[in-house]
């Protein structure tokens, strides 16, 4: 009796496994059959993914998602993700594709399928008061610097360069206000965000300049699919798409549209892809 129940259970499990396997085997066909591509993007990180006045998610990442959906001839559905749940969403199949400011690390490569080539990169920059005449991080010695609590470069910045406590806030708005009020000589943060802020409101930041701090490495970002899809049809298609974007200058065009200028990394990567 028990043996037969066990046998039946094993059969059901095997059948389920086979079904899931079949579903996984061709995600590309599934997306086409559904007619919808579900893309996970940030919704709180301008200019990559953020909400417009009507509550819709816009930015670089939704634009890239739309490009892929157009290529497949399907509709686009955006799912907002945050750094702490983005990989799980992909594993659980809640999203087909993740374009969410994800830095490429060896640990993450074990969990999700990073698409080669990498599509973007981010480093550290400073939005500095022109009067302070900041050129490199070394010029920050002994000066008050605004920052965001929890950024990975804060420790380095304080121990190697400023030599005093950073004026660090929870959110970007507060740090910006403190900078405008003259409480610090500059605001150190992710480059793309700062360049976007500076370019999107020239009047507000007329007294300030934005410059890259080359003391910290530029970390590339990757678009990701499920790990087992990376070398499948779906992963290959995304990979070809990113290569085309780099060759045709599509990424440069979208970056220019949102950030207002092009980053050195992307210019170099595009030039390399064309060779």
């Amino acid at each position: 009796m028990i043996a037969s129940i066990a046998a039946r259970l094993v059969g059901v499990v095997l059948a389920l496994g086979a079904m899931i396997g079949a579903a996984q085997a061709d995600q590309l066909a599934d997306i086409k059959a559904k007619g919808v591509l579900v893309v996970g993007t940030k919704a709180d990180y301008p200019p990559f993914g953020f909400r417009d006045a009507s509550g819709g998610v816009i930015g670089i990442e939704p634009d890239l998602g739309a490009e892929i959906a157009k290529r497949l001839g399907v509709k686009l559905e955006l799912v907002p993700v945050v750094s702490s749940n983005r990989m799980q969403f992909l594993q659980q199949g809640k999203i087909d594709l993740m374009i969410a400011t994800m830095s490429d690390t060896p640990d993450r490569r074990k969990v999700v399928g990073f698409i080669e080539p990498l599509y973007y990169a981010s480093g550290v920059a400073i939005l500095a008061n022109k009067k302070a005449n900041i050129k490199t991080a070394a010029d920050l010695k002994g000066k008050p610097v605004c920052a965001i609590q929890g950024a990975f470069y804060n420790n380095d910045l304080q121990s190697k360069y400023t030599g005093q406590d950073l004026i660090a806030f929870k959110a970007v708005a507060e740090a910006q206000q403190a900078l405008l009020d003259g409480r610090c000589v500059g605001f150190v943060y992710d480059d793309a965000v700062l360049f976007w802020q500076k370019n999107s409101d020239e009047k507000r930041w007329a007294e300030f300049e934005c410059l890259q701090l080359n003391e910290w490495p530029i970390v590339p970002w990757g678009i990701a699919v499920k790990l087992e899809e990376r070398d499948g049809a779906w992963g290959k298609l995304v990979s070809e798409t990113v290569t085309d974007w780099l060759k045709s200058g599509k990424l440069l065009e979208i970056e220019k549209k949102w950030v207002g200028s092009n980053s050195k990394w992307l210019v170099d990567a595009s030039a390399k892809a064309k060779q």
Partner: peptide, 24 residues
């Protein structure tokens, strides 16, 4: 800090920025 602070008299510090008098 954010509403009253900036209204305080400012002092120009050695690197030329007018800083509000009272700090955090």
């Amino acid at each position: 800090y954010f509403a009253l602070g900036p209204l305080m008299p400012r002092v120009v510090n050695d690197y030329g920025i007018a800083q509000p008098m009272l700090g955090s």
